[in-house]
Nucleic acid binder design. Structure first.
Lengths: 263, 263
DNA sequence: AGGAGCCTTCCGGATAGTGGAAGGATAATT
DNA sequence: AATTATCCTTCCACTATCCGGAAGGCTCCT
């Protein structure tokens, strides 16, 4: 099933995860009351859950009373495939691309109706702060997102095409336009965006394939739109993408299921 | 309370975390049955929990049926203080130390009765594979561990002193000897080990202090015991440690509670 | 002093979790 | 081909565990 909002879970585990889910990059530390509001759960319930989580070190409480993600979650996170397989294999290749023009390089996987930035390399003069590792960006307005979407299944495409948020005046919000673009992307083997997520940023992205040729991730560059023709980078990106894909298969990382998130 | 083994939790949240806790670097992917055995929970119970966790993307199931930590946990983990504060601030300093002699450099925090390796830099010719980020090593046999222990509270010291595992024939297993060593460490401001965790490895470590001078982490070098005198590094380490400590306070990371794990 | 936030503890009620038993699906033995 | 050994899944009646309103105690405002 492809749903964005998680239905108000009736299970304890679900509630506990809902509590954790209230934490994001804009809410790294929160008060009990804040968690309660954001998770839409009664204060008392959150109180109980949070304490349990704290006892197990899934959350930590700072001396000011605010809560934060704890070391247990961090430790566990390092074991995820996105981190220890994909990230580690891909980093050297990303470095190579970065060396070319010092453009920001990023790698992303599908995560529900978003694309999840797994890693990125960026110089000091980098424009967008949006794409940190762990960020989840819109599929239809990013290069890596379009690649993933183009190779996604019909159900996913349908879900995304029906809710095309606008970010800039270049953002594609017409389902028809996007759909034909996706077809082209699939045939040509790369995607590009032109200031569709943020003013002044353009990007190129190519697919990364796992076992059996399934697209499991996407590799992209993001550069300032200063007139330079990013199109020249397409061949490089495609070669790099292919080489990296090969390496990923060798590393036994052909399994899209481990990287993606179909919730 | 300072306990190592978690009591067989009676709460659902506890059980769910117990399931997650069966994953470690040696068990990154597991079958349902394996989880059940390692968590010491009935298969049926695990089955239910695991499915719930999978639905929320805390776990992923590969096409071979094995489970693995999912992207949600990874994403949340990046928000932890150990990662986004400590690690990020410390890395440049660690680089500096590494440049000196290409010795492995590591940074660690207290985690229960162990020290948790937060980050390390290591060259290709590095000896020990034991200390990856996320590893938890013994407090009494590592440089960083001794520093943390020396500055730990009485309760912690007592608990550790009562169970000194042996790793090599140099490992200190006599509580009395260790105790006096800890006092010295606290006074002199650095710790060293000589093949106490692994043959052929020596180390030096210094404390990192947060707000109010509390020791919140430790910075260490590990080198092969090839006759070179690591002692010469002590002043450098102390200066680096002090500079980094200052930076940590500036970065608003004075709060030991957020980094440590007092379970 | 009063108000508005927070966080915490308490407790009876019932919901959601429990785990044994049984069935099915492979894969490795004989 | 039959047997044994794994593993995974579904079912269901019981009750342990979670639920969340209410009440009280903080602290920081105005």
């Amino acid at each position: 099933m492809v749903t964005e909002k998680s239905v108000p879970t009736r299970t304890v585990t679900g509630r506990a995860l809902a509590v954790l889910d209230t934490f994001d990059v804009k809410h790294r530390r929160q008060s009990l009351a804040s968690i309660s509001r954001r998770a839409d759960l009664p204060l008392t319930t959150v109180h109980r859950l949070v304490h349990e989580l704290e006892k197990q070190n899934a959350l930590v409480r700072g001396s000011d009373g605010d809560y934060e993600i704890g070391s247990k979650i961090w430790r566990l996170g390092l074991l995820a495939s996105v981190h220890s397989d994909l990230r580690e294999v891909a980093l050297p290749y990303m470095e190579d691309v970065y060396q070319l023009h010092n453009d920001a390089v990023q790698i992303a996987v599908l995560d529900g109706l978003r694309c999840l930035i797994v890693e990125r390399i960026a110089g000091s003069r980098t424009l967008e702060v949006m794409s940190k590792p762990g960020s989840r960006l819109a599929l239809h307005a990013t290069g890596v997102g379009k690649v993933l979407l183009a190779h996604g299944d019909a159900e996913l495409q349908k879900a995304v095409l029906n809710s095309l948020d606008r970010f800039t005046d270049q953002t594609i919000t017409d389902p028809g336009v996007l759909e034909t673009q996706l077809k082209t992307i699939k045939v040509q083997g790369f995607a590009k965006t032109q200031e569709e997520l943020a003013e002044g940023a353009v990007s190129i992205a190519v697919p990364l394939r796992g076992k059996g040729g399934n697209v499991i991730a996407a590799l992209g560059v993001v550069a300032p739109s200063d007139g330079r023709d990013l199109g020249k980078l397409v061949p490089v990106m495609q070669v790099t993408g292919a080489a990296l894909s090969k390496k990923l298969v060798e590393a036994g990382l052909g399994d899209a299921a481990r990287l993606q998130a179909s919730t």
